[in-house]
Amino acid sequence: MPPLLDQFGIRLPIIQAPMAGVSTPAMAAAVTNAGGLGSIGVGAGSVAEAREAIAEFRQRSDGPLNVNLFCHRPAVADAAKERAWIDRLRPEFEALGAEPPPRLREIYRSFVEDDAMMAMLLEARPHIVSFHFGVPRDEWIVQLRQAGIMLVATATSLSEAQASVRAGADAIVAQGWEAGGHRGLFDPDAPDERLETAELVGLLARKIDLPIIAAGGIMDGSGITAAMESGASAAQLGTAFIACDESIADEGFRLALADADNRPTVMTRAISGRPARSLGNRFTALGSAISDDEIPAYPVAYDLGKALHSAGKAMGEYGYGAQWAGRAANLSRPMPASKLVRTLEAEL
């Protein structure tokens, strides 16, 4: 058994990705109770919502929980760019019989400046806290470690992994180019090496003296085995869990996922303001003709993206949703999360 599994308190090298807007405490508890590591993403919610989610998990499981935070650079307002972005998407709203919002907001607060969220974590003390888009300030890392919390950081490159090691991470999620959802880039405006999962895992396993968790394009037991043969101690699966019963993915997302053979995934910045891999839909097609420098900062752009999705849903059009999914989305298997974990275990 890899030492990481002992440290995490899990039996299987299976981690359910903390997908904000899709994963739930019920899903996380089902995965943990089946021998893997369940996760919840709280970066898109309030402190009260995060506290409630942790409490709900603990009502369902006494096992370990991974709580994930966003550590993105706080957005810098650009009123001219934001007005131009609203005007750019206005025809899409009008075609749906709706009006875009008059102004855009920074809808998510980055953990790097959220003292209340930090205080809640020190109070709740989940077994594991993980970070996406970077790492928090040094003193917070020290306080979390002193509270007995294990820390995991996401890296898309060797330099990001090395920065995470210096910050004090206990393990690194190696997020390959195939992965669904937001790229964990520390700087979304810097060049992206676009390393695929196997290549990144092998590189980090050779260069980093910490356990590596493979993420990106892994959907079954053979994928987990291949990741571990590349040097990973465990695998993190996200897209594999989207169709599970406990997921809160909406009807349109589930239908799109079921049609993944005909919907190649696309890396787009247009939906949220940061590069993210989605099933191909109306929004990704729209974004393909838009240059990155036209798009407001994350998560300000996401305010308009969510408004457009809501307008579409009201008319029965789901093609403007953030249908985050990895390249192997067509291998998705709808079933309860606990059954999926058992299935993955049998395939290992």
Rank of each mutant, 00 (worst) to 15 (best):
F70K: 10
C71E: 02
R73I: 10
R73C: 12
P74N: 12
P74T: 15
A75M: 08
A75P: 11
V76P: 01
A77P: 04
D78W: 05
A79T: 07
A79R: 10
A79G: 02
A79H: 07
A80Q: 11
A80R: 06
K81N: 11
E82G: 06
E82W: 03
E82V: 08
E82P: 04
R83S: 04
A84N: 03
W85C: 00
R88W: 00
R90Y: 13
E92P: 01
F93H: 09
A95M: 09
A95F: 14
G97A: 08
A98D: 13
E99R: 06
E99V: 12
E99D: 14
E99Q: 14
P101V: 14
P101F: 12
P102Q: 09
P102K: 14
R103T: 13
L104E: 02
L104P: 03
R105L: 03
R105I: 01
R105E: 11
I107S: 04
I107W: 03
R109P: 06
R109Q: 13
R109A: 09
R109M: 08
F111Y: 15
F111A: 08
F111N: 09
V112R: 15
E113T: 14
D114N: 14
D115I: 03
D115T: 10
A116C: 01
A116H: 07
M117I: 01
M118Y: 02
L121C: 05
P126T: 02
H127P: 07
H127M: 04
H127A: 15
V129F: 08
V129C: 11
V129E: 09
S130P: 05
H132N: 15
G134P: 09
V135H: 08
V135M: 08
V135D: 02
P136C: 07
P136A: 06
D138H: 07
E139M: 02
E139C: 00
E139N: 07
W140D: 06
Q143H: 02
L144Y: 02
Q146V: 12
Q146P: 06
Q146E: 15
A147E: 07
A147R: 06
G148K: 10
M150Q: 14
V152C: 09
A153H: 05
T154K: 10
T156E: 14
T156D: 03
S157P: 08
L158G: 14
E160H: 03
E160W: 11
A161I: 10
Q162E: 15
A163V: 05
R166N: 07
G168H: 05
G168N: 04
A169M: 09
I172H: 02
V173K: 12
V173H: 13
A174S: 12
A174W: 01
